[in-house]
Design a binder for these strands. Structure first.
Length: 721
DNA sequence: CAGTGAGCGAGCTTCCGCTTGACTT
């Protein structure tokens, strides 16, 4: 429904989001016109930092290009109404938006009111209108300090990298710590030394009262460090009489998780639906714009009273009173500002929704999580059975769980913390009935060599969780930050194939021990974040010269300052000055004293020519160099070769680097024309008769490929056209 | 579609946090 002439209204309400504006307009009477500012309308100018450092860090704000039109319209409307209601979010950034609007639209105290609400419900909006206040200038100043600090750090640090590492690179309070996390995790993995031990499991036959026999799995309570110990144990088990030595039953309670925030939604959508964080946000945006869910960029786990009422009706109506338990959740995350509700369906009596498949799936996930958060605990009984044999000191343990009341599990299965793991717990089912003293025959006892797990590489969603734990970044920046570090070439999201690993396997059956060598695939990765060479070199540089900025608690420390500013206890530009004086000196000193950092490594000498072999970051990325450049015309110029996919400055060996200079390589003649293999701008290729055939990664290695195989590829290409 | 890597210097790059579309293949 189009509004009547917009000039006739007496009140103009300005919120941040247009979807929000539409909803709110319905709650307010005809006297109110509701418009959106589309977020911030101004930002620091680009040139000269946008800050007059000598003049108390006076910010120079300009209306952003894409907001000129918005500001023009708001200005016009503001003039035509009696009262302008600034209704941006109640957090640091929202308060600043209100202040920028006030300033830029030329408002006055007489015609302006500041209102806030944390949920988009009729009662919350009407209540806000009843209780206007003034703009909180201390909170605005805290935001200015935040903005100025980020600009100073980003715009002073990035140029240092341009001079010392490579042009166009970037550094910042958030992105540089993000890269650090990934680099350090990669090095932990590289340094990790897996240790093996033997895990022993057994299958016992349990005879029921009616004579039926069922199988029961049990695990030995101890792992053995060596094959010898394992064999000694299995020998002891030969002919041993196993008995049930103990049965304990313990009640177990499971509690639902809090409703979704941006970060937890990204994590669950990644685990259960395989979405990237960017994908989750754009699908959620669609649902939000269609009015199907509440705002998707939030750090709050709170639900509006109206939502609790809807949940209560839905749960009691469909599942019964005993499934209902209304709960209030508290946020645990550092620096949460809770300007919004948790992410929930706008109407809780709709378990499904129309739309694309992705929208349907994400919506259902949100619906289930929201409903489950207001449901009863699940009650389980956990049974643990101990099994022992005379003369054997170690014992087996079998455990089972029985659900006595499913509670919230009826709608929502929480996924485990393990990344990549999908829903469901261990295969703990029901145990067959038994009594202490019962004799059990073993069907089989197996021992399998197992390795300790290396630390897990970050997925996008796991990285977001880590950042949130450290209080770094905000709901609106998690997805963009992950794009930035990839766009800068610091991080890549990749698949890695696993490697084969041999392990020992022993089995005791019919009192005989069998031993076998088996193999497994280990270390395969899908959609995980890896640091690039540039990422590592930049991180090492920052760690050496700016450890304070890339420290994990830098953000937490400055946040404490911002809090003080927002309480009016300290003056914002004095706080910035204290930081900037020493930081700027640090920048100057680094520019003067630090060497160019290209991650250069001397691998040794080429045995054929005696020339040195080095690897470093060149203009076009990581490369190897054979020989040194020299002023002397007599001396041969050095040779260069790019590193291949999967090769890294830190780990490449002399032999691998030397082989890179074998390219381009003559394979021989085919149809009287030369066949040459090399690496070009677009990767490895085979050239024949002026035509190129690309080699697929992981299929053909340019260093290994033979003439026969190359001919196959050439012929295949000929046929395909 | 199929290398490049010296050194100089012009002119450019760059931050974080609020919001949506606007562009196509």
């Amino acid at each position: 429904m189009a509004k009547k002439s917009s000039i006739s209204e007496e009140n103009l309400v300005i919120v941040e989001s247009p979807a929000k504006a539409k909803t709110i307009e319905k709650f307010l009477g005809n006297n109110f016109l509701v418009k959106s500012s589309y977020g911030h309308i101004r930002d620091l100018a680009k040139k000269d930092f946008g800050i007059d450092i000598a003049n108390n860090y006076l910010p120079n704000y300009v209306v952003s290009d894409d907001k000129k039109e918005v500001v023009r319209e708001l200005k016009k409307l503001a003039k035509s109404v009696k009262t302008v209601w600034l209704a941006s979010d109640e957090d640091r950034e929202g308060e600043a938006i209100a202040w920028h609007l006030y300033d830029e639209l030329g408002l006055t105290p007489e015609n302006t009111k500041r209102i806030v609400f944390h949920e988009i419900t009729k009662s919350a909006i009407l209540n806000a209108v009843e209780n206007p206040r003034d703009i909180n200038i201390d909170l605005v100043n805290a935001q200015q300090a935040r903005r100025v600090l980020d600009r100073l750090v980003g715009f002073e640090l990035s140029p240092v990298l341009w001079k010392k590492v490579k042009p166009s690179l970037s550094a910042g309070r958030v992105q540089s710590v993000t890269v650090r996390l990934i680099v350090e995790r990669e090095r932990e993995i590289f340094a990790f030394n897996p240790k093996s031990s033997y895990r022993v499991t057994a299958v016992f036959n349990v005879t029921n009262a009616d004579g039926r026999v069922s199988e029961m799995k049990a695990e030995l309570s101890k792992r053995f460090a060596t094959l010898e110990e394992t064999e000694v144990f299995l020998n002891k088990c030969k002919g041993a009489q196993f008995k049930v030595s103990d049965i304990t039953k313990k009640p177990l309670k499971k509690t639902p998780a809090a409703p979704f925030t941006t970060s937890t939604l990204q994590q669950e959508a990644s685990r259960k639906l395989g979405f990237s964080v960017g994908q989750t946000m754009s699908v959620a945006q669609k649902l939000y714009e269609a009015g199907k869910i509440t705002y998707m960029r939030t750090d709050s786990v709170n639900l509006a009273d109206t939502a609790l009422k809807m949940a209560s009706e839905q749960i009691t109506g469909v599942m019964g009173e005993e499934y209902l338990k209304i709960r209030k959740y508290q946020t645990k995350s550092k620096g949460a500002q809770e300007a919004h509700e948790a992410i929930r369906p706008t109407e809780l009596n709709k378990p499904t929704v129309s739309g694309s498949q992705q929208e349907q799936k994400l919506y259902e996930l949100i619906w289930k999580r929201t409903i489950a958060s207001q449901m009863s605990d699940a009650r389980l009984e956990k049974t643990t059975v101990q099994i022992k044999a005379d003369g054997v000191s170690e014992h087996f343990v079998a455990s089972g769980e029985v659900i006595q009341f499913d509670g919230f599990l009826k709608v929502y299965l929480q996924s485990s913390e393990h990344d990549g793991e999908t829903e469901g717990e261990e295969d703990a089912g029901l145990l067959p009935p038994m009594n202490v003293g019962d004799q059990l025959m073993y069907e089989m006892i197996e021992a399998r060599e197992r390795w300790s797990q290396k630390p897990a590489r970050y997925s996008e969603a796991a990285l977001v969780k880590k950042l949130e734990d450290l209080g770094i970044g905000r709901p609106s920046t998690y997805a963009p930050t992950i794009s930035t570090v990839q766009n800068r070439g610091y991080v890549v999201k990749e698949e890695r194939e696993g490697k084969e690993r041999a392990y020992r396997y022993l089995a005791l059956k019919n009192d005989e021990i069998f031993s076998e060598q088996k193999t497994e695939i280990t270390g395969a990765e899908r959609n995980k974040l890896f640091p690039t060479d540039v990422g590592m070199v930049v991180n090492d540089f920052l760690m050496r010269y700016f450890p304070n900025i890339v420290s994990y608690d830098f953000t937490a420390k400055v946040e404490m300052q911002f809090d003080e500013i927002s309480l009016g206890k300290i003056v914002w530009n004095e706080s910035i000055d204290e930081f900037y004086k020493s930081f700027h000196q640090q920048v100057e000193e680094t520019l003067e004293t630090s060497e160019r950092n290209t991650g250069e490594r001397h691998l040794g000498e080429d045995p054929k020519t005696g020339k040195p072999v080095i690897v470093k970051i060149g203009r076009y990325g990581p490369m190897a160099q054979l020989g040194e450049s020299s002023e002397d015309e007599e001396v041969e110029k050095p040779k260069f070769a790019s590193l291949q996919r999967g090769q890294h400055l830190e780990t490449i060996t002399l032999e691998e680097a030397i082989r890179l200079f074998d390219l381009p390589r003559d394979l021989g003649l085919y149809e009287d024309k030369k066949v040459v293999v090399g690496i070009g701008r677009f990767g490895p290729y085979v050239r024949h008769d002026g035509k190129f055939v690309s080699l697929k990664k992981g299929v053909d290695d340019p260093l290994e490929i033979e003439l026969d195989r190359a001919i196959v590829l050439i012929e295949r290409k000929k046929k395909s056209r």
